[in-house]
Design a protein around this nucleic acid. Structure first.
Lengths: 281, 281
DNA sequence: CAATATCGATTGGTAATACCATTTGGAAGG
DNA sequence: CCTTCCAAATGGTATTACCAATCGATATTG
């Protein structure tokens, strides 16, 4: 009983196999052609599978950690070919909703989505030239300003301690000339700021924009990151005092320096070589 | 003839310049089996194709409107199977970078990415429960506040005229009881606001968040939208006077009403049935 | 007996192939 | 010249086969 894990997964027969992942919604292209001329046929088969699983996810029928049947089983149950199932699963994986694992007791597992898919998409827009770096940094400044103010209002001591620790790690990494580690900590700072602000939406968006800055920094291999430590300590200090205006000003100063550096140094983004498709590692 | 490709049997990082679309640089020597215990075999074949095309896009080698070779040609040029090429193209389409068209003179065309992919991803996060509606509306309020202030500072008469026209269309649609049209205009308002603010990043983000609100509104089929017209006229009026604080306050009041309605009425999102996968129509 | 090594079954990953559906352009016919 | 229709090209789907990776169970060995 390999996948008893998955709930019900009812299949009703083999021929009309129109079936669904969990209940009967009138099935897919059982007979391959959309019934008569009703529909526009623009819907591709794998999209129906995609939407079906996605719908079940949204309705809570599938929870993070659950495992879907194997591709072969799904294909048989749905009455479609395995490539169709594959493409649907791939699209879902691409959206960060599924994780595909090989091997026995592998399969498609429901993920609890995080912001990485958003990051990648925003990333695409920037590097495809649809969004300019100027506007990105500007928007990022506004968002961080808001996050700082919220952190002043809502941050807890635990949040501040986490930020302290992060700044300290950053200092060590910078002193050790560990560029990758430094930038990693730099990014964590923003995430922790979002946490202190108690707004995950803000956190995700800030994370998406910051990741782009991080990639650029990584490609630039900057030397003088030391002043960042002082700046952040000042911001953190103001936040701890719950002085929103002062904290905002300090953060703005910080952003002015950082963004000016990034925008100036990375004249043309085409020079940068990045590694996309993080595979949700 | 499939495996006739040369094999640089790379050690782990030589798969850099492996390929160049359209420039006959055959095969990913990148053997799928990363040598020995080196671990981390994470990179799947189609991801290399994906990244390769993506890189060419970012470097400007491929411009919007360009057409890639057919799947069959690509498969042959790259020395991989057609399914691999397919999955890569699919992923790119999913990211909004490609458009696949059937028929002769069809193929894979480079798209100029827009914010829809971002919207869908954010959408997923919300409806999968990772992001709460409360936080979404809060973040949206902040962003719109910023947009309003920027519009006060940078908006042109043309921008304001467009906003005027939008409000008027919205009024007509609401009076005609055309719910879909009303909501469509409601959303356009935010996009136009972003345009007036002269920051595309802000526009994309606001659009993503607003689209979720729009979907909820669509599912709720609200009745009394009439007060929206008055509220927006007020906001617009303040913006035109370049009075940022007043415009911000008016917008905040507007958001308070709208968001309270949405949050209250849509107790559990699971009731809502939405249509995902817009297929970038 | 316990720790280790090996094998095999399951599952995703890739490949090759065939055929269908759709679209478009050009040829044939009016 | 216009219309109609067919055929080639292309994406979409299905089928099949095999490879690769993983993990559990069994066998082996200390």
């Amino acid at each position: 009983m390999a996948h008893a894990v998955l709930r019900t997964l009812t299949r009703h027969n083999s021929h009309r196999g129109c079936l669904d992942i969990l209940e009967e919604e009138e099935g897919f292209g059982c007979d391959s052609r959309r019934v008569e001329a009703g529909r526009i046929m623009t819907q591709r088969l794998f999209e129906e599978v995609y939407n079906s699983i996605r719908r079940d996810l949204m309705r809570g029928k599938l929870k993070p950690g659950d495992k879907l049947p194997s591709e072969r089983d799904l294909a048989e149950q749905l009455g479609v070919g395995r490539p169709v199932v594959r493409e649907a699963l791939r699209a879902l994986e691409n959206s960060g909703m599924l994780e595909l694992r090989k091997g026995v007791s592998g399969g498609a597992f429901i993920r609890q989505g995080d912001g990485r898919a958003v990051s990648r998409t925003v990333n695409d827009l920037v590097f495809l030239g649809k969004l300019s770096l100027d506007q990105l940094t500007e928007a990022r400044s506004y968002l961080l300003d808001q996050a700082v103010r919220l952190a002043c209002a809502r941050g807890t001591d635990a949040d501040f301690a986490a930020l302290d620790a992060n700044v300290e790690r950053m200092r060590v990494a910078i002193e050790a000339q560990a560029v990758e580690a430094s930038i990693s900590e730099i990014m964590d700072f923003y995430a922790l700021l979002g946490t202190a602000a108690k707004n995950d939406v803000l956190t995700v968006i800030i994370g998406s924009l910051s990741e782009i800055i991080a990639q650029i920094l990584l490609a630039l291999r900057p030397e003088h990151l030391t002043d960042l430590v002082a700046m952040r300590r000042e911001v953190l200090d103001k936040i701890r005092q719950r002085d929103a205006d002062a904290a905002s000003a300090a953060m703005a100063a910080h952003m002015a320096v950082l963004h000016a550096y990034v925008v100036q140094k990375s004249g043309n983004l085409h020079m940068l070589d990045l590694e996309p498709f993080d595979s949700h590692a």
